[in-house]
Amino acid sequence: MILTNIETVPGYKVVELCGFVSGSTVRSKNAIRDLGAGLKNFIGGELKNYTDLLRESRDEATKRMISQAEALGANAVINVRLATASITQGAAEVYAYGTAVKVQKTGN
């Protein structure tokens, strides 16, 4: 599965449009980690737990988008966008969406 966030796939040619695909997820860490992050936040600096949380939720959202695209019979998703929102304290939503297409390799 090829993912790009531009309108074409370089080196490939779009042959068929399959439709709009999206995937979203809301995740949170456990209460102990939230407490730890809160203490760390008091003195500032990087919050490793929340970085992990963001990475996990981005992976999950992309995975869901890809499975939707596979169900439509596509082999690439173009124009992928990621949007984030904070729902409640310590929870992050990541929403990934794009256009599923079928692509074919061209000469160059």
Partner: peptide
């Protein structure tokens, strides 16, 4: 930058991400 054209042969295309979470401390 929506299109990319170059004379070189393109081998692989993919999406890359980087994420960071920084907290704002009490003094700030």
């Amino acid at each position: 930058c929506k299109n990319w054209s170059s004379n070189k042969q393109i081998k692989d295309v993919g999406i890359v991400c980087g994420e960071a979470a920084i907290g704002c401390d009490y003094f700030k």
